[in-house]
Write a protein that binds this DNA or RNA. Structure first.
Length: 915
RNA sequence: GCCCUUGUAGCCCAAUUGGUAGAGGCGCUUGCCUUAGAAGCAAGUUAGUCGGCGUUCGAGUCGCCGCAAGGGUACCA
């Protein structure tokens, strides 16, 4: 990227456009068509009975205050291309857009500016909508939805109650992620490396009563459904790993000679190693700890438990951290061997998984091994690698340097189960334990229930009333929605309750069941609830009596093509699948998997100034740098890497400023306004036009690939748009719309027209396949080739022939999903007025016209290219082989050698194998 | 650590079920046009596909082992 380009990016004044770079009148054209489309309601959804349906959906965005930048085109443009393409191909298309505007960003903004988010959201949505229209995205705005409107969120409440009724929404006190800075609870996916995703502050465990949805009840269905959907394998793998199904055995370990003797239930997937158990470990929070700990150990145990509770997740999982624990003083019995084993407490055992207790087999588990080493516990060997070792099994693993964890060994020292392959031993031991009543086979999941309550203001109120007499009482359906009241103060209380708790009118109600005084739940729902069913709402957004119209949902679902970022692989996509499966089970819809196919767009990166001394590539705002000038700074950087600069830091408390030195580097980081590396669509639309921006995004790299923003490269597609303009407007004067009746005959008598027709039909085939397969980059390339072929044909043969008209009309049609404004304009200039290409039929390819007359036959000897021959396209195997053997080069090369085999690939090559 | 993805000209990227390594774009060079530049047009320019082994008549493409980059996830018993 040249320095010139970058300085252009920075320019906020679009009126520096040089006259010379403006070729075709894209500004007027784009404005005009956007207006016409809107007035004519071109993109209004149809449900024509004669047409199949196609539902294309972009992930529900939060309309942020920064507006759109060109990076957003990476997700919205391809969806638009597909919608247009499928409509032209004869589908009823549903392509809606709406606003996922509840949640933290809006609320943080409200707190900062002290404005009710209720007032801000419509403004932000309006700005998003303006920019999406500016890009020429053809959404059906009649179906726009807003998750913060009571008409929408009342159905969140309805869904909550439905789940509650089935026992799938429940409340329990649970340790949750607590952000110390923000005094708020975070979902697991909102915690990065033990820090808050927003403020990077520390996150600790805190016990609070919380609402959960029992997604774990759907673990099997969510797992099985993955096999039936066309999603990227990587995303499916991530979901499978997240659900984390594992099969094993659960059994009890009796506690010996202890004050509160009982049993400890453990879960293991390696029951084949059960004879190698040398101790038992409980999680620090395990309920039995109190009762089994001996007097002598009580003090030590208490200290350890307290320390564990205070540790943040970050500390607890810190890299290379020592595996620590404490002895309880108690012992248990290995139920299969009768051996006595000590019982420890250690924080490497998690409360939330399995039974919160494990059998420790140090010889064959890396964690247990480390622990045993540290506390000098025995390391009995029960698995070996070879037959030889079975004969003379080592008893003690104290000489081992690491645990032997391979799953293809043989058992030893395992009583009657010795000498068996690990898998067989596991199977037999499990069977035996079950028959003896010692243990049972069980399946466990890593998946946890979905935490949906938040102690925040800006969300859907949870429709539950707490009654001292009746307990948890659902708000009657007739009383929905429970409207989110206005509030003076948006800040969380800091005691774990939402600001709603301070509104007496809201909180104090009478119990719907007994009529007595009761209190409303003051938690609100996580934003992930809103986005878990919005795709159903889009099928009938005006539905007042029900969340969706059954007929409409059955017609449109599932979403044919869902487009969004990879970051939602396990959060949103899993929740949405869960809701859909649930609604299916409730017989409310006929589809259980909401998204038949999924596509993840790549990121868009931009050149960013960063702090060279930060390992994490911290961006430095350009506006903070003293005397910033991109050209010269980049030149300095290129000549010597990072360089010294000064930045102005504003002190938020005193309002003063100070200047401090900083070392500046450049890096490619995701585009965002906060990093000050963003380029707006408005700027590009003004300078090159939205069509060129769309083409750039589509052409620069494959859809899934990350691209590095380059205005310089954009000029390539801008030139292409201009060439298309020149070529087609050059045809307009002579254009005859009745060409379809004449083009066949014309091509029969005119070989140049025949060649042009062939290229036209090859372009149809290529572009059709490419768009259908999301290969937009090669589709654009094919159009470049086609437009160039047409241009050259006109130069040589003139613009007044049916084949030229066909080529020009086809070019525009094929281009129209990608660059809709210029296409509609040129279409009209050819005389097809009163028509939008969105409603025009997609061109049909005639494969006989596209087929070439001649082929180049490759002739190889032993797979190496020796000659090329030009032959008729329909030449058969015999003709090709004879021609090949007749070639002088082949004759020379096969002289005196035995021809062992001849391989013929029709239309491609002949390979002569000689010995 | 584990999982996923990707390595092709100076750069971004093409290359049906294995079958001529190059479609397109950016950049660069030269020419035309121009008072000059920009824009445009024309012609040209560069790799043998990250490395190794294997399968095959034939490997950029398939398999295995490495290396590098990017992303995800992390004590899940």
């Amino acid at each position: 990227m040249s320095s010139e380009t970058i300085s252009d990016n920075l320019s906020s004044a679009p009126n520096i456009i040089e006259e010379a770079t403006r070729r075709y009148p894209f500004q007027a054209i784009e404005r005009r068509w956007q207006q016409q489309w809107a007035e004519a309601g071109v993109y209004r959804t149809t449900e024509n009975k004669d047409r199949p349906k196609y539902y294309v959906l972009d992930m529900f965005p939060y309309p942020s205050g920064s507006g759109l930048h060109v990076g957003h085109c990476k997700n919205y443009v391809p969806g638009d291309v597909v919608a247009r393409f499928q409509h032209m191909r004869g589908h009823n298309v549903l392509h809606p857009m709406g606003w996922d505007a509840f949640g933290q960003p809006a609320e943080q903004d409200a707190i900062k500016r002290n404005i009710n988010p209720r007032l801000v959201v419509p403004l932000l949505a309006k700005e998003y909508k303006r920019q999406m229209n500016l890009l020429g995205i053809g959404y059906d705005w009649d179906r726009e939805i807003n998750s913060t409107s009571p008409e929408y969120y009342r159905w969140n409440q309805w869904a909550f109650l439905r789940l509650h009724e089935k026992g799938l929404a429940y409340r329990k006190t649970a340790p949750v992620n607590w952000c110390v800075n923000e005094s708020t609870v975070l979902a697991n996916e909102e915690v990065n490396d033990g820090t808050c995703w927003r403020c990077d502050g520390p996150v600790v465990k805190k016990d609070l009563p919380q609402w959960f949805f029992k997604i774990t009840a759907y673990a099997e269905k969510l797992l099985a459904g993955l096999d039936r959907i066309d999603w990227p394998e990587g995303v499916k793998t991530q979901q499978r790993d997240w659900i984390g199904r594992s099969e094993g055995v659960e059994f009890d370990i009796p506690v010996l000679a202890s004050p509160g003797a009982g049993t400890i239930r453990v879960f293991t997937t390696r029951v084949d190693t059960v004879y190698g158990m040398s101790f038992v470990v409980l999680s620090p929070e395990h309920p039995l700890v109190e009762s089994i700990t001996t007097e002598a150990q009580r003090g030590e145990v208490a200290v350890y438990r307290e320390k564990a509770a205070r540790l943040s997740d970050m500390d607890r999982t810190a890299e290379g951290r020592e595996r620590t624990g404490v002895f309880t003083g108690a012992y248990g019995t290995n139920p299969v061997s009768g051996h006595r084993v000590p019982i420890y407490l250690a924080d490497y055992v998690l409360t939330g998984y399995g039974t919160g207790a494990i059998m420790a087999v140090p010889a064959h588990d890396a964690r247990d091994f480390e622990f045993a080493r540290r506390y000098h516990l025995p390391i009995p060997v029960v698995i070996v690698a070879t037959e030889a070792e079975v004969a003379q099994p080592p008893l003690d693993g104290s000489g081992m340097t690491e645990a032997f964890t391979a799953k293809d060994g043989l058992t030893v020292n395992s009583d009657r189960f010795s000498g068996l392959p690990v898998k067989v031993a596991g199977w037999r031991i499990a069977e035996w334990m079950e028959s003896e009543g010692i243990g049972v086979r069980r399946t466990n999941y890593k998946l946890r229930d979905w935490l949906v309550s938040r102690q925040r203001y800006w969300g859907t109120p949870i429709p539950i009333i707490h009654c001292p007499q009746c307990g948890e009482v659902p708000v009657p359906l007739a009383d929905l929605p429970v409207v989110l009241p206005d509030v003076e103060n948006y800040k969380p209380t800091g005691d774990g309750r939402s600001p709603l708790a301070a509104i007496a009118d809201f909180v104090n109600v009478s119990c719907p069941r007994c009529g007595g005084a009761a209190q409303r739940e003051t938690d609100t729902m996580a934003g992930s609830v809103d986005s878990s069913w919005y795709f159903l709402r889009f099928t009938s957004p005006g539905s007042e009596k029900e969340p969706w119209d059954r007929r409409a949902a059955d017609y449109w679902m599932p979403v044919n093509r869902y487009i969004g970022g990879r970051e939602h692989a396990v959060g949103h996509l899993l929740y949405a699948r869960f809701f859909t499966h649930f609604f299916y089970d409730e017989a409310l819809i006929s589809t259980d998997e909401p998204f038949a196919s999924l596509s993840n767009q790549g990121m868009l990166l931009a050149e960013t100034t960063i702090d060279a001394d930060s390992a994490e590539k911290h961006p430095v705002k350009r506006s903070e740098l003293v005397g910033f000038d991109f050209d010269s700074w980049l030149a300095r950087w290129k000549s010597g890497g990072a360089f010294a600069a000064e930045r102005v830091i504003k002190d938020t408390e005193t309002g003063g400023e100070r200047v401090e030195p900083v070392s500046i580097d450049f890096a490619w980081l995701k585009m965002s306004k906060s990093k000050e590396n963003a380029v707006t669509p408005d700027y590009i639309a003004e300078k090159y036009g939205s069509d060129s921006l769309r083409l750039y995004i589509l052409f620069e790299a494959p859809f899934e690939d990350t691209i590095q923003w380059s205005e310089e490269r954009m000029t390539g597609v801008f030139r292409f748009a201009n060439r298309v303009w020149d070529v087609v407007t050059g045809v307009a004067d002579t254009y005859d719309p009745s060409w379809p009746d004449k083009v066949g005959a014309a091509a029969d008598t005119d070989s140049a027209q025949k060649v042009l027709r062939r290229r036209t039909h090859q372009a149809i085939i290529k572009v059709t396949d490419d768009i259908a397969e999301f290969r937009f980059n090669t589709a654009v390339s094919a159009l470049m080739i086609h437009s160039d072929a047409l241009r050259k044909h006109i130069l040589a043969h003139g613009a007044a022939s049916p084949a030229v008209f066909e080529a020009a009309a086809t070019l525009i049609k094929l281009l129209s999903p990608l660059a809709p404004h210029i296409a509609d304009e040129l279409w009209e200039r050819l005389g097809h007025s009163g028509n939008y290409l969105y409603n025009a039929p997609w061109p049909a390819a005639d494969s006989s016209v596209a087929a070439p007359d001649e082929i180049t036959l490759i002739v190889q000897i032993n797979g190496k290219l020796v000659d090329r021959l030009t032959l008729p396209a329909d030449a058969d195997a015999k003709t090709c082989e004879l021609s090949a053997l007749d070639s002088p080069k082949i004759k020379a090369a096969t002289q005196g050698k035995t021809i062992r085999k001849i391989i013929f690939v029709p239309g491609k090559l002949v390979n002569v194998v000689v010995g």
